[in-house]
């Protein structure tokens, strides 16, 4: 594995415009640290695959700059230490799994002996050893993903870019791919995952970025992203219709006197605060009125909640439609951004 100093990926003001109209990326600033699993998520057409393709020299950037393993993006030399699994890959169907991994290693310029050793070990790692001599045309989607992952790792990369790696893979396979990602991180490699499967990203990623309409809406660790959004849930051991009466007595309305939000869901009261001192009087009031409290627990928004927040227009409350932003949308979008901030 190639070792490099600095960040694995560093992008500044990266932009891509297709033709004159479609602005797929609009000044993306992104930093991926070495040795972390980084997740990139976003709705359809947000520019995730475009971003990956720019990193892999498949697409040329329109503006901005960046480095990949310390080398300028868009240069072939930057690709020596990179592994890549494209989203809609179409590997030659006449090759066997072993031949595909070996072929990929050859294109990466790896010598024969080393290539053979790595091919066998990677096929073992992705659980395809028994299918190594079967042609790809006979593989299922999940099996193709597994050998695709093996071919992405054949050059012993310092960074692996995986575009929807669990697409078409069964739950067991997904867990195995997550484990592989974790193992790669433990080996000091950087893993960059582009996926729609938020729960999986949540499980495996150290840091995340949400891309919306070609811009990074937010990025950081999950804790950083949910900072200030911790809630307390108070769950009563009564029927939901009776719980409502207790809640009306201790916390009427939609906000506490101190301003925090109140949400009611069945037998659960959710308080929009991270301060235990705010929760205590409510809790005491419920107990004094004879309610049996089953649980009191802090809760934080899921990645899905964050994602929905990111793709929801706060002024209209509507989720943004799929696809990149066009120039015609620029002016209204900017006006919207002003209102949002």
């Amino acid at each position: 594995m190639t070792t490099v100093d600095g960040h694995a990926i560093e992008l500044s003001g990266l932009s891509k415009t297709f033709g004159r109209r479609v602005r797929a990326l609009r000044g993306v600033d992104l930093t991926v640290r070495r040795g972390e699993v980084f997740g990139l998520l976003g709705p359809n057409g947000a520019g995730k695959s475009t971003l990956l393709k720019i990193l892999m020299t498949v697409i040329r950037r329109s503006g901005g700059r960046g480095t990949l393993l310390g080398r300028p993006i868009g240069t072939k030399s930057a690709l020596r230490g990179v592994g890549y699994l494209p989203e809609h890959h179409r590997f030659p169907s006449y090759l066997t799994g072993r031949q595909l991994v070996d072929y990929s290693g050859s294109l990466a310029g790896i010598g024969r002996g080393e290539r053979r050793r790595r091919t066998e070990s990677l096929l073992e790692m992705v659980g395809m050893k028994d299918w190594a001599t079967t042609r790809l045309r006979q593989y299922s989607k999940g099996m193709k993903q597994r050998v695709g992952l093996a071919q992405a790792l054949v050059n012993d990369p310092a960074i692996v870019l995986l575009d929807e790696p669990t697409d078409g893979v069964d739950p067991v396979g997904r867990r195995e791919i997550r484990d592989i990602c974790a193992r790669l991180r433990d080996e000091g490699r950087t893993v960059f995952i582009n996926s729609h499967l938020l729960s999986e990203l949540e499980m495996v990623c150290d840091r995340l970025a949400i891309l919306v309409k070609g811009e990074v809406d937010r990025q950081g660790t999950l804790d950083e992203l949910v900072a200030g959004q911790i809630r307390y849930d108070i769950e009563l051991a009564v029927e939901p219709d009776k719980a409502g009466a207790f809640f009306d007595l201790v916390a009427p309305g939609e906000r506490l006197e101190s301003g925090e939000t109140i949400e009611r869901t069945g037998s659960t009261l959710r308080l929009g605060t991270t301060e235990p001192d705010v929760v205590q009087p409510i809790l005491r009031g419920l107990v004094e009125r004879g309610a049996t409290v089953r649980a009191v627990r802090p809760s934080r928004p899921s990645l899905e909640d964050l994602f929905i927040q990111a793709v929801t227009d706060p002024t209209t409350g509507r989720t943004l439609g799929p696809g990149a932003r066009t120039r015609q949308e620029e002016k209204p979008a900017r006006a919207g951004e002003g209102a949002r901030s």
Partner: peptide
């Protein structure tokens, strides 16, 4: 799907 794999090699 094919071109991406080829172009991503050095």
């Amino acid at each position: 799907g094919s071109v991406e794999t080829m172009l991503s090699r050095p």
